[in-house]
Design a protein around this nucleic acid. Sequence first.
DNA 1: AAGAATCTACTACATTCGTAGAAGAAAGTC
DNA 2: GACTTTCTTCTACGAATGTAGTAGATTCTT
Lengths: 130, 130
Amino acid sequence: MKLSEAEWQIMNALWRKNPATAREIMDSLNGDVRWAYTTVKTMLTRLAAKKAVAETKRGNTSFYTPLVDQRNARRNALQNVVDRVLDGAVAPLMSFLIEDRKLSDRERKELIRMLRDADRKGESDGRDTQ
Amino acid sequence: MKLSEAEWQIMNALWRKNPATAREIMDSLNGDVRWAYTTVKTMLTRLAAKKAVAETKRGNTSFYTPLVDQRNARRNALQNVVDRVLDGAVAPLMSFLIEDRKLSDRERKELIRMLRDADRKGESDGRDTQ
DNA sequence: AAGAATCTACTACATTCGTAGAAGAAAGTC
DNA sequence: GACTTTCTTCTACGAATGTAGTAGATTCTT
């Protein structure tokens, strides 16, 4: 499942509120996105065509629901970025997280904790993906 | 500077070997990419048009050089992914790194170290971006 | 019920993207 | 020098993307 940037906007709105009508989605789009109602409808129709969302009618109004799992979709997108953009390396992802200071103290500490856990696990089964 | 997926392939090849001719780039493209020579040329022409690469002629052959900084280009791309795909959150980036086990033991340990450093820094200036 | 507001389905249209092919010029090979 | 290989520049072309407009059907409002 490959989504365009505009489609991600819609999906993110839908994941936030589900199910939702086209208008609700339009209203909950992120700040810098200002689309005509019919633009939103077009995107939804396209997403329905590629089975990324389901469309259910009640009265003359359609309600939309995501059919793809958010976590999964994101993982695929990230993997794609690693492959295509980062040329397969995850190191740039780490520097992005750390050097570009996208993390709050809380996030940083949480990440350290998660890593320690993974570290313990990694040692026990001795895996080394690199 | 916005690059398409195909353009990333070219740029990554160019960053690996710089300067390079169209044929060298073609030959050093990543495994799953098999483009006709003229396809590579087309991409290079387009990249030159958008000032992402410079083209210099020697004899009847062009040599190409990246004009955009790799680190920078990647950072922008990642920021864009965070904004559009991850809806502004970095948490999914962390789980991707950790849960999807993209890290070798070495990378994991390195990451922990980097985080500790950043952590110390974060404490001293008391910043908390979240 | 008449008019206003809202929905839907269809159509549109310029750009960008992926992916070359053709034809002619230049260079390498024997 | 003739033939082969390789480069370059131009042109092409369908699919995907971003971004709606129109017109007709429905529903709400008073």
